[in-house]
Design a protein around this nucleic acid. Structure first.
Length: 284
RNA sequence: GCGGCGGUGGCGGAGUGGUCAAUCGCACUUGACUGUAAAUCAAGCGCCCCUGUGGCUACGCAGGUUCGAAUCCUGCCCGCCGCA
């Protein structure tokens, strides 16, 4: 967040004849622009971007869909003889491409989920233990969302296998390192700018176009708190304060994900990144 | 000036004689992650020794009562409300 990755991606694409693939779980939705910090047409500077605006906001999108669409996109880019550049902050989505795990084929079961939603973690855990004791051993037993999905998988086709990774592509991972204080300031400045550009109006517009307040809660920080502000639960000042805090928390969670990626190459400036890519592409 | 209410950890806010370093929420720090991932979940969060049924300092300030006080009493300081 606010590290300058979109901008870097475009520069790399220019320099190395590439196209950009977004790895962002909110920018996949059409119409979520200001609130997600989506790159604008102008900022793209003619570089083709993929995996943006591929889903309607009311419908839930997920990693498996992301994985599938991305493989298509990458195939197309390679066929055109170009370099695919994945850029984004959703660790899970990045790993969906880089590690290419084959997710259990059990498809989300809305009815089952609704049924389990109000059960306590303890009962969910008991259910899972019966269905898939091995999984129960290693799962986070306090986390209803994980428990429900695990049950979903077990019900569909018995005990789950360990997740296999089958990487398809040779990848270079670049992490951008920004000093925390600097990042904090940048985050806030960016938020204020987006507010001036009409972020709240965007939320309002989405709602009039049929996105429920309930759904808004799930579409990302800006939409969640923006909606609360519009409903009068937050003052403008409170909106700004809680959003800065929440965005910062989110940014930290991103970092904990990236920190554990094994071969990530950390860069503090564009030159370092450029050099990395040059060396990487020289191998082919 | 008189009367009422209140001052608790970074913030909000419990507790009203012992089991209180003090419920809880937020913020903060660290981490997990098998189709919601900007989601969901976990741990830590006065100071020190970092072994424990450990030591120290704490609930506006200063005294007092008590075996024992954030909790009771007195004085002072500060805030809000009502009457002047």
């Amino acid at each position: 967040t606010a590290s300058g990755k979109s901008d870097l991606a475009v520069q790399l694409a220019k320099k190395f004849n590439g196209e950009v693939i977004s790895a962002d779980s909110r920018q996949v939705y059409k119409g979520l622009d200001l609130g997600t910090g989506k790159i604008t047409k102008q900022e793209m500077r003619g570089i083709r971007h993929h995996l943006l605006d591929v889903a309607p906001p009311p419908k839930q999108f997920d990693v498996a869909q992301y994985q599938k669409l991305t493989h298509h996109a990458i195939a197309g880019i390679l066929k055109r003889g170009k370099l695919p550049i994945v850029c984004g902050g959703t660790g899970l989505y990045i790993s969906a491409i880089v590690d290419n795990p084959s997710y259990p084929s059990a498809t989300p079961d809305k009815r089952l989920r609704a049924q389990l939603e109000h059960k306590s973690p303890a009962t969910l855990f008991a259910m899972l233990k019966k269905l898939d004791p091995a999984r129960a051993q290693i799962i986070d037993r306090n986390n209803p969302r994980r428990l429900i999905r695990a049950i979903e998988i077990a019900k569909a086709h018995g005990p789950a296998e360990a997740l296999k990774k089958n990487p398809l592509y040779d990848t270079l991972l670049i992490g951008i390192r920004v000093p925390p204080e600097k990042l904090k300031t940048a985050l806030r400045a960016r938020l204020l700018k987006r507010m001036r550009q009409g972020m709240v109006q965007e939320v309002k517009r989405l709602h009039t176009k049929g996105v429920s307040w309930k759904r808004m809660e799930e579409l990302g920080l800006e939409y969640r708190y923006g909606a609360r502000y519009l409903r009068g639960e937050l003052s403008k000042q409170e909106l700004i304060e809680t959003l800065t805090a929440k965005i910062w928390q989110y940014s930290r969670r991103q970092m904990t994900w990236f920190r554990k990626m094994p071969n990530i190459r950390w860069c503090t400036n564009k030159q370092q990144a450029m050099r990395g890519v040059r060396m990487f592409t020289a191998r082919y």
